[in-house]
Design a protein around this nucleic acid. Structure first.
Lengths: 235, 235
DNA sequence: CCAAAAGTGTTTAGTATACACCCATGG
DNA sequence: CCATGGGTGTATACTAAACACTTTTGG
């Protein structure tokens, strides 16, 4: 037994360790456009970067991603899921790094105050990105694909909406995600048929003359729907 | 510039590096059941393991996964895609290791001869697994979820079939994947309506009295379909 | 009172499900 | 000649897409 263990340890010792980073694609919706939150890197004035950090010895990957997200946004209960591990030997020119990318969906406007000043964070339209560090552009692209895919199959879109929202607002989100223009009437019917929305007695004022009813997500049903779908879908 | 660079290097030097492993969930179909290929670990006679290995300094993750798969199976052109990164601090009790899991779909029976003897590999039904190393059971479970999900949305199932196959055989595969019993007639129509299959002039003999026609995948159309779907779906 | 946005209804086409029926052939 | 598995057809129910019409209200 001890012999075997020693043999194993030797096997392990021969291997090269690498730094493991986490990068988060933080997506938000401002009412018109799908946005991604980027931070400024000291390296180059014109290079932006995803929010990232290093994996610490006592952390799981999920936990590390949550910690890093919290450091920037001050938010804790955020939709966050692992996207993909990136490990090109030259992706980081300084040293070999494997980065596990996560994507987060947050409700913009809910609480911008939590945004840490330390990182000089800024929202960018996902269709007009600045020059990005390393393979971060690739990561964002993949995150968008995943979002599009998932939003079509599960009620993930609500994660990007505020607590109260109108159907026309929700349609705008889907239009932005798919970069298209859904039929107002069919969209409304389809969304309501999920039974996940609760109609409130309050109408939106100031935008349109008639005013649209506010809705909120039926958290219980949403939970169930997410679970039944998530157990079926990967992750 | 050099100042900045030095600063960055210091930042990097403070970080802890970890071993990065790759583990492959190799799935196959023997005509009746969905199987996973496991190897015996020296540690314990009764513990089996996924085929795995270490990330080498010059490799991308995909390349490393392919290499490791080749070492075991001798196969090169195999469906292989990244599944998920696993990084629990205690998943490997010997040392902290982050493992990037891949899942592979191979055509069983095509060429068993390539299987390296060095690893004592064996096929297990995915519904009757032995005791597994670390978090490998979890990895297999996730791979199955992903397979179920993907097979429902893209023509990925063919990767598990031999070059020539009959519709009833393909139905058996889908029955095995979903652990259900699809309607023979509707299944046939649905599959054929994809236009991805080419009917051959040959019938299967020995199994049924009438004999079922063999089909093969229309590689060109399959390629297109995969691309259009893959560009939409994550990864 | 009208323009603009919101909400409801209807028609039509396409797809999925369930099931009935015929075909081919080895024993 | 019939049991068994393979192949084709059809009636019905859903679901999705396209589009017309009515409602509300600020200016």
């Amino acid at each position: 037994m001890t012999g075997t263990q020693h043999f194993m340890l030797d096997q392990y010792k021969q291997q090269h360790p690498y730094l493991v980073a986490l990068d988060s694609i933080i997506l938000g919706f401002d009412g018109d456009n799908l946005k991604v939150l980027l931070v400024k890197r000291g390296v180059n004035e014109e290079t932006w970067s995803l929010m990232g950090g290093w994996l610490q010895p006592d952390e799981t990957l999920d936990r590390a991603a949550n910690r890093i997200l919290f450091e920037l946004t001050g938010l804790n209960d955020v939709y966050l899921e692992q996207l993909h591990a990136f490990g090109d030997p030259h992706r980081d020119p300084i040293t070999r790094t494997v980065s596990v990318a996560y994507f987060a969906l947050i409700k913009v406007g809910t609480d911008e105050s939590g945004l840490s000043d330390a990182y000089q964070a800024q929202w960018f339209s996902v269709y007009e990105l600045p020059h990005l560090l390393f393979d971060h552009a690739q990561m964002i692209e993949l995150a968008l694909k995943r979002l599009r895919y998932k939003a079509a199959h599960q009620p993930i879109g609500f994660e990007l909406m505020p607590e109260k929202f109108t159907i026309p607002q929700l349609k705008k989100l889907f239009d932005a995600i798919y970069n298209t223009d859904f039929d107002r009437r069919n969209f409304s019917r389809k969304i309501l048929s999920t039974g996940l929305l609760i109609k409130l007695d309050e109408k939106q004022k100031g935008f349109s003359k008639k005013g649209a009813y506010y809705y909120q997500v039926d958290k219980e049903k949403y939970q169930q729907a997410s679970e039944s779908l998530l157990s079926f879908i990967a992750n």
